[in-house]
Simulated scan of single mutants.
Amino acid sequence: MKEKVLFIYLMVWILAGCTYAPLPKQNGNAGTEKKITKEVIQEGVKTFLLIGVDSRGEEKSRSDAIILAKYFPEQEKLKLASIMRDSYVKIPGDKSAYNKINAAYYYGGKELLKKTIQENLDVKVDHVAVIDFQGFVKMVDLLAPEGVVVDVDQEIIDDMSIQASVGKNVLHGEEILKYVRFRHDDESDFGRVERQQEVLVQLKSAFINQISSFEGIAALPSIIEQGLSYLNTDIGVKTIMEMGPEAVFHTPDTVETLRIPVEGSYKDEIYPHTGAVLEMDYTKNKKALQEFFTK
């Protein structure tokens, strides 16, 4: 089977800014006032879908990195749920009905992938960002200009021709792309998802550090404008800037991660039209996602 590339993509300032919506304001009328409860807070938290595609500009590609993200400013917490690309799901409108989830983007782009996630996992997506290889490399260098610290072993160095030594290294865009693409060990795609989430967390921290000074805040509009040029997203600069201050003053202290399908909820299967897939227990994974995003 031809290798499909799994890589991390992200727009941390979109995560921190645009997944936040202010809580309902109290109007002083006891009869109509909406009590501020955990449920009300949850209503104001939006779900962002991050899609990484295995492309360097080609018209058709598959989504080999899929992350659902939510930021909870009241709890200063960021939650990231990665969906394995080989997850076997029902794709709306697909002639074969069931396929790998990464085929949804190939057949119908971000809208079909959104619909597939909602119908299979009961998660409503509010906003989407898509990035390819070239955009990823530029985004890494934009958000972490001083590089990202990762632990590299000899197997990754040899397989991906990474210019690094065994152990801790500071890597930049092109080398980080290689680092998160690696899959030729016993952990395969499961290891790639872990590296994907690892780098995502580091980029979040690097970006927050970058804008924590007066000079950084002053540069925020240009950083956002430049970052948006690397993305295909339904969020514009004006919207980000209107909500952006929450990203600066409510940066997450905690980042929690989840992988779908969860442990013990799937089995390896092979089908003629798809090859190897992860056939999941939908009930268990829907419950896991619901609990993850509501606790």
Rank of each mutant, 00 (worst) to 15 (best):
I83G: 02
V262L: 09
I8W: 12
V89N: 08
Q210R: 15
A65F: 04
L78N: 01
D186R: 10
G244L: 04
L177H: 01
K46R: 14
R62M: 03
S61M: 00
S55G: 08
K115H: 02
E119C: 05
E246G: 04
I223Y: 15
N169W: 10
T254R: 14
Y230S: 05
S265M: 06
Y179G: 07
G135K: 03
K287D: 14
I235M: 14
G191M: 14
D132F: 04
K34W: 08
A81Q: 01
G52K: 07
L203W: 03
L49W: 03
S213M: 10
G57A: 09
A219L: 06
P73W: 11
K115A: 08
T274H: 06
I224V: 15
V130W: 01
Q290R: 13
D94G: 00
I223E: 05
V137F: 08
D281F: 04
Y98V: 00
E146V: 00
I14N: 12
D158Q: 03
V125E: 01
D253G: 12
E198W: 02
V170M: 10
I36N: 09
E119A: 03
A69C: 07
R181L: 05
V248Q: 01
V170D: 01
E39C: 08
G167A: 09
S63K: 02
Q134N: 15
Q118S: 11
Y107G: 04
S96W: 05
H184F: 12
S188Q: 13
I51Y: 05
K38M: 11
Y271V: 09
H250L: 05
I217C: 04
K168M: 13
M243F: 13
Q42A: 15
I176H: 05
G57M: 02
L68I: 12
R195I: 09
R259Q: 13
L231F: 08
W13L: 13
E242C: 11
T294Y: 00
T37L: 12
M1S: 15
V45G: 01
E59T: 08
Y9S: 13
E198F: 14
I101D: 01
S96V: 05
Q75V: 05
V5S: 11
S96L: 03
E174N: 13
H172F: 07
T19S: 07
G147W: 11
K70G: 04
E269P: 00
R56K: 15
A65T: 15
E59N: 09
T239S: 14
Y20E: 08
E215D: 14
E215G: 09
E215C: 02
G31R: 08
E3H: 12
D54H: 06
K46I: 02
E175N: 11
G191W: 13
V199L: 02
D185R: 12
G275A: 11
T47F: 01
G52Q: 06
V148L: 03
T283K: 15
T251F: 13
K90L: 05
D281R: 06
Y179T: 00
D122N: 14
V12C: 10
F133I: 02
I176S: 07
N99Y: 03
L200Y: 08
D153L: 09
S161F: 15
K70R: 15
V123P: 00
L203A: 07
E187L: 14
E74L: 02
I83Q: 04
K90D: 10
K114C: 14
E76Q: 14
P261W: 08
E39H: 08
K95A: 03
K138F: 02
T274N: 05
N29R: 09
I235Q: 12
F136N: 10
